[in-house]
Each structure stands twice: as structure tokens, then as C-alpha cells.
């Protein structure tokens, strides 16, 4: 049996993945210029300084786009097909790749989403559900 691919944990991203285990999605914010971003990097891509901190996101965001895989590119996902992958923009600004909770047929772009961390097997991962409080 193959296992889910694992992220490469190092000094830079340890806090990010540890926070997800606690149900919190963190992003980086520059203490110099205020820029906010994901994924984790060593320097702020706006001012290029390494003077940043990690901040918890509200977990609210909007759906930029999504796809549904009908082809597996890794043995782990062979029996998970079809599965969806999304790009979500947090209300604080950063964008990230994440899983989706809802059926793709219910989705539309720019829909309000809310974080719903998945830990069905292995490591906790960012997933998003349609934010029913905002559902029209």
C-alpha cells in the first residue's frame, strides 16, 4: 500500500505544517512592508527582507478555480479518483493549493469558502468547504 506524498519539512515550514495539525492555517506577513504571502519562503518577495512573522488566517477566503483529476500521477491517488484540487485566496491575501470538501457540481468561482482541515489519513491538510453563512 502506498502512502500519501509528504511535504519536505524543514526549519522554514515546520510551523506551517504544525499549525495545520492544530486546525490553523498560517501565512507569512512581512514586518517591514506588510506584505502577506504563501507558500512559505525565506524572504519577502516584495521587499526581499527576511523580517517576517507567521500569522493565523481567519480561514475564510474565496474560490479562484478548481480541477477534478481523472488521471492519477502517483500511486496513492489511483483509488482516490476522481478528486478535486482548488486554488483558494484567503481574505488576508495569500493564495494556496488546497483540497475541497464539497461536490464539484456545487462550486462556482469567487464563491466564499471556509477552512475545514482534513486529516483523513496522515498529515493534516488545508481543505475548504463552501461557506454556508455566505451562500446565496
Amino acid at each position: 500500500m502506498t502512502t500519501r506524498p509528504e511535504p519536505e519539512i524543514d526549519e522554514r515550514n515546520r510551523e506551517y505544517w504544525a499549525a495545520l495539525e492544530e486546525g490553523v492555517l498560517k501565512y507569512q506577513r512581512c514586518l517591514g512592508c506588510g506584505n502577506a504571502w504563501l507558500p512559505i519562503r525565506s524572504e519577502c518577495p516584495r521587499c526581499l527582507e527576511a523580517n517576517w512573522t507567521m500569522v493565523p488566517s481567519s480561514g475564510r477566503g474565496r474560490l479562484i478555480s478548481w480541477v477534478v483529476y481523472h488521471t492519477s500521477y502517483h500511486p496513492y491517488f489511483e483509488d482516490k479518483l476522481p478528486y478535486a484540487v482548488a486554488v483558494v485566496q484567503l481574505e488576508e491575501g495569500p493564495r494556496l493549493i488546497a483540497s475541497l470538501v464539497d461536490e464539484p457540481s456545487e462550486l462556482r468561482i469567487d464563491q466564499r469558502m471556509v477552512l475545514s482541515v482534513q486529516r483523513d489519513d496522515g498529515r493534516a491538510r488545508a481543505a475548504f468547504a463552501v461557506d454556508r453563512d455566505y451562500a446565496r
Binding site: 509528504e6 478555480s65 500521477y73 491517488f77 484540487v85 488546497a98 483540497s99 468561482i109
Partner: peptide, 27 residues
């Protein structure tokens, strides 16, 4: 190939990147 740590989400391969753009364009 997987796209870095996002392989955790099953984010693999060239077609998916274009599919992500296509979906947004369609909507």
C-alpha cells in the same frame, strides 16, 4: 511531476495547471 509540497493535495502534472486556468476562463 508533483508541484513541490502541494503533491500532498494530489497537485501533479502539467495538464492540471492548464485545467485550473481553463476552469476559471469557462466560469
Amino acid at each position: 511531476r508533483g508541484w513541490g509540497d502541494d503533491a500532498v493535495y494530489g497537485w501533479f502534472g502539467t495538464p492540471a495547471g492548464y485545467a485550473m486556468i481553463a476552469q476559471r476562463h469557462m466560469q
